[in-house]
Design a protein around this nucleic acid. Structure first.
Lengths: 146, 146
DNA sequence: AAAGATTGAAGGTTCAATCTTA
DNA sequence: TAAGATTGAACCTTCAATCTTT
């Protein structure tokens, strides 16, 4: 009901800036070095890691926590870019990384790892890491009964 | 270069989930209760706080750290929704909140404050707040020479 | 009917190109 | 010319409506 305290407002501002900066920096480095967007990277990663390059569209969506429609739109774009193919199979659609898609994700992995390290992991002091992780876990958890 | 360690990967995953959850929850509550999107809220807040309801478009963009084009697109939509007006003035454009816009932001403020408190501030333990803020500040700061 | 998937529209962001005006 | 602003295209996300197949 009442306004935020100065402390709360500062925390909110710092949080927004940090969330924005980390997302932007990692995404920009990934795109600049590999041409893959963040969603591209996520989709290709799961195809390779979970399905050795191919998964049912439905499983892919579930593994990413995405709605059908979001994945459908994303795959339409990735298909046009030559990263994946879609094939109708009984009961759904089979998604497969193309060789270009596999090559792109292979090239992108070390770039992504380096960016995560540089823009996130390296900036959290070792002594604080456990507590920081615990707080993040609390923030990410499903809201309890309001 | 090398892969992320298990700790680094976990931190990255927790960070992404938390950033996503906080943004989504606050944005959803704001939209559900007031019809304002996050960008709408930001624009109207600054118009009221910095300019008593009206600012030069250029100043508005600078105060938000937005590119001209982003603000231009956003204002086009907000004008259509009746939240702001734009008027040509010597050297630029004057943006003003309409009475509907002013009413919307007045109604939205307590909702936003409550959401920030519920989904962010209240979940950071008081004992950890200072260190947490310091880490966020480090994450948000401009990258030093790479 | 139910599950899997697609589609279109609207909102948002970014980039490059363009227009306008001081 | 340079600063302020707009525009269009491409990308992404969400929602609701609509197939399509089992």
């Amino acid at each position: 009901m009442s306004d935020l305290t100065a402390d709360e407002a500062e925390l909110w501002h710092l949080w927004k800036s940090a969330a924005d900066a980390v997302r932007t920096r990692i995404g920009d480095e990934l795109a600049a070095a590999t041409g893959l967007s963040d969603p591209d990277f996520g989709v290709l990663s799961r195809l390779i890691d979970l399905g050795a390059g191919t998964l049912r569209q439905n499983e892919l969506a579930a593994s990413m926590g995405w709605h059908r429609s979001r994945l459908s739109h994303q795959l339409t774009r990735m298909e046009e870019r030559g990263h994946v193919t879609r094939t109708a199979v009984p009961g759904g659609v089979q998604v497969a990384a193309t060789s270009a898609g596999a090559a792109a994700i292979a090239a992108a992995r070390p770039v992504h790892a380096a960016a995560v390290r540089a823009h996130l992991a390296a900036l959290v002091p070792p002594a604080q890491r456990a507590e920081f992780a615990a707080t993040l876990r609390r923030l990410g958890e499903a809201a309890t009964a309001d």
